[in-house]
């Protein structure tokens, strides 16, 4: 008898969870190069002659908020996520939202806010061992993209863009607002768009805060879109 009641209980739970929205709310990032899914160490054609490959693509998502009719209705606690294009599980950020909460927009930041940037050593995704902290000039790298292209007349044809900065006038934290569906928001990051706009032939390294990092971050933002 006990066994049956347990069985019914488990089945009951299964049904209950199925009755809810099939996908719980999340932001899911999909890095692509044009029509292809972005993969590590794969050469992608920029045009008939030139190509590019990516060795690293990492960025911080922080300060996630849900908005309903222009009002913030939910803020994620301890909202710091390191997204790594080549670590599948890091691409999906589940949002632990109370059931029945209504929302229509989402806000999140690309990067780490200035208060956190001046608060000393942090753990978890913010741990300086994650390769996203500048050692010689304090601050987080908000967005990092590294790779190789024949367009770069550098050692090993490498390029490195480390975009950060928390201090005025080079505060490089970017807030993004998007329409939020009830379930999952699929955000596409198209590296082809970024590469075509990037000055690969002239500028191969950005490693500190400043105008160039600000400009490049704007280009990154322009490469984000919602997957329909």
């Amino acid at each position: 008898m006990k066994f049956f009641s347990l069985l019914f209980f488990i089945i009951g739970i299964q049904f209950a969870s199925m009755a809810q929205t099939p996908e719980s709310p999340a932001i899911v990032f999909g890095p692509v190069f044009g029509d292809s899914k972005l993969q590590e160490l794969t050469y992608y054609k920029i045009n008939d002659i030139d190509s590019v490959q990516f060795t690293a693509l990492k960025f911080y998502i922080s300060g996630v908020e849900l908005i309903h009719q222009y009002k913030t209705v939910w803020k994620e606690a301890n909202s710091y996520h390191l997204v790594d294009a080549f670590q599948e599980q890091s691409l999906s950020l589940p949002l632990n939202v109370p059931t029945k909460l209504k929302y229509d927009r989402i806000k999140f930041n690309i990067g780490i806010d200035s208060t956190t940037s001046v608060s000393g050593a942090m753990g978890g995704d913010l741990d300086p061992t994650k390769g996203m902290y500048w050692a010689w000039q304090s601050g987080y790298i908000n967005f990092k993209v590294e790779g190789k292209s024949n367009l770069c007349k550098t050692r090993n044809t490498e390029f490195q863009y480390h975009l950060g900065g928390y201090r005025f006038p080079y505060n490089n934290l970017q807030s993004i607002f998007m329409d939020m569906p009830a379930s999952q928001l699929h955000v596409v990051l198209d590296l082809k768009k970024l590469i075509t706009e990037m000055p690969l032939t002239q500028k191969h390294h950005i490693m500190s805060p400043g105008n160039e990092a600000m400009l490049m971050m704007e280009r990154v933002i322009n490469c984000l879109s919602i997957k329909k």
Binding site: A121, P128, T129
Partner: peptide, 28 residues
């Protein structure tokens, strides 16, 4: 004043190629 907090100060000399030349990940 490039370092903004005592906690992250040691990262400077640890990673500087002319000082300790090491990565914090590797120290750990």
């Amino acid at each position: 004043g490039a370092i903004n907090h005592l906690d992250v100060q040691a990262l400077g000399p640890i990673s500087h190629p002319d000082e300790m030349g090491e990565k914090i990940e590797n120290v750990v």
